[in-house]
């Protein structure tokens, strides 16, 4: 059975932060079309702060996720601060006691993060939010495992589904958040939260896949 080591896998979070920082301008640009254009800036700030704190720490994945979640939750504000904050903190909590993370633990982690988000936000799939990337990604992962595919294959399926979900937001009308006040005019534009969520899931799952043994 494929697993990856929790210890020292905090680098995955560092790489994730780098990717978010690189995409700062891009995320702000898509956000600017139907939102207020600050998504990239705030995300980069939060992820950058967390990366700074994790520097040279040799953290485990659980510790790194906990640091990231806490920074986002307590220091960033906005709507993404609490939403991603709760997601990462839940992720961390679920794998804290797991040394070798297998597909079951990974799935448990994903579900806890998703439930965390749903407990503080009121969005559903189809509302043009980050859930449009997240929910299909988790479903694809579980389906792949249920179909007997390997952990690595399931992680690939997860990433593909997250990105397909992100792309689906182009054809959705926003139901929640500031963009919702635009109604039909939000059509044709990607949702910034769904886009950043797809980046996060790709980086996290890619990092996990690269460490599988």
């Amino acid at each position: 059975m494929q697993t990856f080591e929790n210890a020292k896998a905090g680098d995955i979070v560092q790489a994730l932060a780098e990717r978010i920082i690189e995409n700062r301008a891009y995320l702000s640009e898509i956000d600017g079309k139907i939102g207020d254009g600050d998504h990239g800036v705030n995300m980069a700030k939060g992820f950058g702060l967390a990366a700074e704190r994790l520097k040279d720490k040799d953290a485990s994945l659980a510790e790194a996720l906990e640091t990231l979640g806490t920074v986002l939750m307590t220091e960033i504000g906005g709507s993404m601060g609490p939403l991603y904050g709760v997601m990462f903190t839940e992720f961390a909590e679920k794998i804290e006691a797991v040394d070798a993370i297998d597909a079951t633990a990974y799935s448990r982690m994903l579900h806890a993060g998703l439930e965390g988000i749903q407990s503080i936000g009121s969005a559903k799939v189809g509302d043009k939010t980050l859930l449009d990337s997240f929910v299909p990604a988790v479903e694809a992962f579980d389906a792949a495992i249920a179909a007997g595919r390997s952990f690595a294959e399931a992680l690939e399926a997860l990433t593909a589904a997250a990105e397909a979900g992100r792309d689906s937001t182009r054809d959705l009308v926003a139901k929640i958040g500031r963009a919702s006040r635009l109604g039909e005019r939000s059509l044709g534009v990607l949702d910034a939260g769904a886009t950043s969520c797809a980046i996060i899931l790709r980086e996290l799952s890619g990092g996990a896949r690269a460490r599988l043994r």
Binding site: D36, D38, V41, N42, K45, M73, T74, E75, I76, G77, G78, S79, G81
Partner: peptide, 11 residues
């Protein structure tokens, strides 16, 4: 006081 157009965090 939050960031530009962005709510302050709880603290």
């Amino acid at each position: 006081v939050g960031n530009i157009f962005s709510s302050p965090p709880p603290d």
